[in-house]
Nucleic acid binder design. Structure first.
Lengths: 231, 231
DNA sequence: CAAAAGAGTTTGACAAGCCAAACTTGATTG
DNA sequence: CAATCAAGTTTGGCTTGTCAAACTCTTTTG
């Protein structure tokens, strides 16, 4: 069985691959997200290579092998199901479950996880809208565009928050920007890099396009109109 | 925060103190229940002494300090609440939850545990009938006498199984001897060290007095009659 | 294109825990 | 009471995972 440390590395690599342009993870990047030194990462990576979880040339980025990817998806499945449980069943705050799940995910057997999955009704996404891989490692694909790509007067539904930072999540939660929430884009100020939304009956909410790019939404069908914008 | 290893030691010491005549735990005993060598235990015990979780003279048994006892009760609380959850909510088999809880208990924060406790309705006992300490370390006391102390024709209700061995638990479960189960003592054969029970409508069940001493029961009020017997 | 900067690697050290094996105590017991 | 033996302790060694710091590539850039 892989250790908790190995699982954390693999999970981090998976995430970095996903959103790095080259589809690779770097030593420095891993060190930074895991909060450890480059030296430690180098040591661990050479072990992961030996056990065929990752591959890559010396002095260059690493990629997960098929085995590594399977493991990463397994860890992600555990993590996200646990988050659903903590929020739906135990009513923990949406923004505080990440670190809890971070520890529990390493202690839960496949059997318990499957029962939990059934108990929760086989959810497709976690509380942040992240898709939950199924037991075979298949990830349901959700579509959604960054808020920062929308235009004035567009209406939409939040589908996903791609930023686990708890301060960011608290902000988002405080303004009811959870998945499922409906909103309208009321104003965009490209010079100020700002976007303003109307969410429910709450006061108008403004945030930077940078922050908005971490929130994915689905446009609600709305006759004719063009779109396009860049962060 | 105490490591998982420290928690396991403290928990083991607590259990050994409870049912050793001298109220102490021995190095050899701890080594045996944790499945490690005496040398390793000696090393850890000296660390536990330094951190004031246990006390005791050199070359003699150890006892938990107040701090140590508090920690032990905390771990026990986690363990048992998790067992209740696994059985009641996730429908795991009664006999397979122990090892699961053994791992999960080290990964669950106080906050999650409190929510879980509330979700489960503040149970007093776990699926084996073991009392669950409350958040302040108070253990509800349950009375119950070993089955081996009962007499023929006595009727009772199982309250607790004091033996976590999964083969024993499977046996017990297979014969419906769970806590809450009603039974009648139909026969006792002191020479054969055997006791026979009638549980529900099941066929008569015989077991050794030794095994019976690991099952605690409460007698059901039944007019006049004396009792007494020894394992 | 040479030098600085970044990124990756290596080395030596450390903390937890564990083991095996030698050694010391203390408790029988013949 | 001396011999024995179980129980406790010590020592040296191993693994995992970490750090700090020196070193070496590779890339960027003046």
């Amino acid at each position: 069985m892989p250790s908790a440390a190995v699982e954390d590395y693999v999970k981090a690599i998976y995430a970095m691959e996903r959103d790095s342009p080259a589809g690779e993870a770097s030593v420095a990047g891993i060190a930074s997200v895991l909060g450890i030194t480059k030296g430690s990462v180098a040591g661990m990576l050479s072990k992961l290579k030996k056990s065929r979880l990752i591959e890559g040339e010396r002095y260059s980025g690493v990629r997960l092998t098929e085995t590594g990817k399977k493991l990463a998806l397994d860890v992600l499945r555990r993590h996200r199901l646990i988050e659903v449980f903590l929020v739906e069943t135990l009513n923990l705050k949406w923004s505080e479950v990440h670190e809890e799940a971070e520890r529990l995910e390493h202690a839960m057997s496949a059997k318990v996880l499957d029962r939990l999955d059934a108990f929760l009704g086989h959810p497709q996404v976690d509380p942040h809208g992240d898709p939950i891989p199924d037991a075979n490692g298949h990830v349901p694909s959700l579509d959604g565009v960054p808020l920062s790509m929308l235009n004035e007067t567009d209406q939409g539904v939040i589908v996903r928050i791609t930023n686990q930072g708890s301060k960011f999540l608290e902000f988002v939660e405080r303004h009811s920007l959870r998945p499922e929430a409906r909103f309208t884009v009321v104003e965009i100020q490209p010079e100020a890099q700002l976007i303003s939304l109307q969410v429910g009956r709450k006061p108008k909410l403004s945030l930077s396009l940078e922050a908005a790019s971490k929130i994915l939404a689905k446009r609600i069908k709305q006759p004719k109109r063009t779109q396009r914008r860049h962060t």
